[in-house]
Design a protein around this nucleic acid. Structure first.
Lengths: 227, 227
DNA sequence: CTGATTCTTGACCATATGGTCAGCTTTGAC
DNA sequence: GTCAAAGCTGACCATATGGTCAAGAATCAG
């Protein structure tokens, strides 16, 4: 019997690894599209090319599978959250922040939508994470932003609202992809589109918050993001 | 037998009107929380305080109920979309745009989440609307924004990305409410919070896009939104 | 080759789903 | 009061759901 073996991606034999990969990928798609309740193990199994029983064999239950996907997504997220200090250049930090957030949406659109669907449904599985880890992370960033404001490096805006602004506007291109494509008339967003959007967001945020260069004197803030 | 009578909110007898109201309200909540597939008529019926058969009696089918909710939300949305002209003051228009979008999220959070869930799932029911009406609306606004840019009233940013920025950042406070509350540690967002966020967004967008006053000469653009 | 471990899967189960329907009660115009 | 229209709802149906299990197949270390 397979004991409590439902661990991470790397342990286990080659067969297990291959099948788990297929299941996780399929499940991410299906959960992202239909939410936790709306997703069915049958559909996940079909998309993974396995019988339903096999999915249960590897994942234990629908709930465990879902939680595992969320955890995987939180890991990706956390990998982005490197530390910053008040000594850093605000423009650089904000720019890197926007860029890396955008890249996660780009690289893991299904995971991004899965996360969105979880939050939309009231975050029944992520309450702890939101009120713990993530909250701490936001507060520590907010403190740095506030210090920058005090030093006159940026306008005295509310840092938390700024973080939400960046999160929402970057997340949008994964979560609302259907809307973006429908309205722009494209059938996909290319790397060049994403680069353009990244630069647009960076520019508006940095200029909009009155970010100034720390060392030199004030130039037009908009030029900071232009090569 | 009740013929094809599934129309809008105002026709029909008093009983019908009352029951339909209850059903629609309950359904909006449940669909918003669990998505189209994940929502069950049973749960909707319970929340409306009616037997399931009664829900079917009034709404015909799950699909019809869902479509009707979407249509109602699109009506609210359209009510916001008044016309603008290149002669208007960009700052005023953008400010009003952000404010009214924010108020919709505020007044109809469930509807907003319902919409989000539909788009997240690939917009199976709203493709037409996105590629038709809404697209036209965006293009016409974009044209005005572009003209403003040409007249030097704002930076030459891509108007479509700007509209998405405003949509995403305002929608966020309804759709990701769970996240916002978890991180800020509040148990609800008050009117004052919303007002503060609205002013923040307005300020960042207007300043970030380099919006200038049309009549007089250039002052600090940020002061435009301050009373 | 052997024996244990891992893998595979169809049959099966209790429950829940969206939807139908027949027969009942209530309502309201005349 | 009459009677048709509107409203109501429990019983019922085919299907799909998440999950269990037992029995067989493949794998692999010794």
């Amino acid at each position: 019997m397979a004991k409590a073996r439902h661990g991470n991606d790397t342990e286990g034999g080659a067969i297990r690894r291959r099948n788990e990969r297929a299941i996780l990928a399929a499940a991410e798609r299906v959960f992202a599209r239909h939410g936790y309740r709306g997703a069915s193990l049958q559909e996940i199994a079909e998309q993974a090319g396995l019988p339903k029983s096999n999915v249960l064999y590897y994942m234990g239950s629908k709930r465990k599978l879902y939680v595992r996907l969320l955890e995987r997504m939180m890991e990706r997220w956390n990998a982005m959250l490197d530390d910053i200090s008040p000594e850093d250049d605000p423009a650089e930090v904000l720019s890197a922040f926007i860029r890396s957030k955008m890249q996660i949406s780009r690289r893991h659109p299904e995971g991004s939508r899965l996360f969105a669907s979880e939050i939309l449904g009231g975050a029944p599985f992520l309450q702890e994470y939101l009120k713990g880890e993530l909250r701490d992370w936001v507060q520590s960033r907010a403190a740095v932003f506030r210090e920058w404001a005090e030093r006159g490096l940026m306008d005295p805006i509310d840092p938390v609202w700024l973080i939400f602004l960046i999160w929402s506007s970057t997340q949008h291109y994964a979560d609302f992809e259907a809307q973006v494509l429908g309205i722009t008339g494209r059938d996909a967003l290319g790397d060049d589109d994403l680069e353009e959007i990244t630069e647009f967001l960076t520019r508006v945020v940095i200029k909009g918050c009155g970010v100034k260069h720390p060392a030199g004197r004030v130039e037009d803030p908009a030029t900071l993001t232009e090569r």
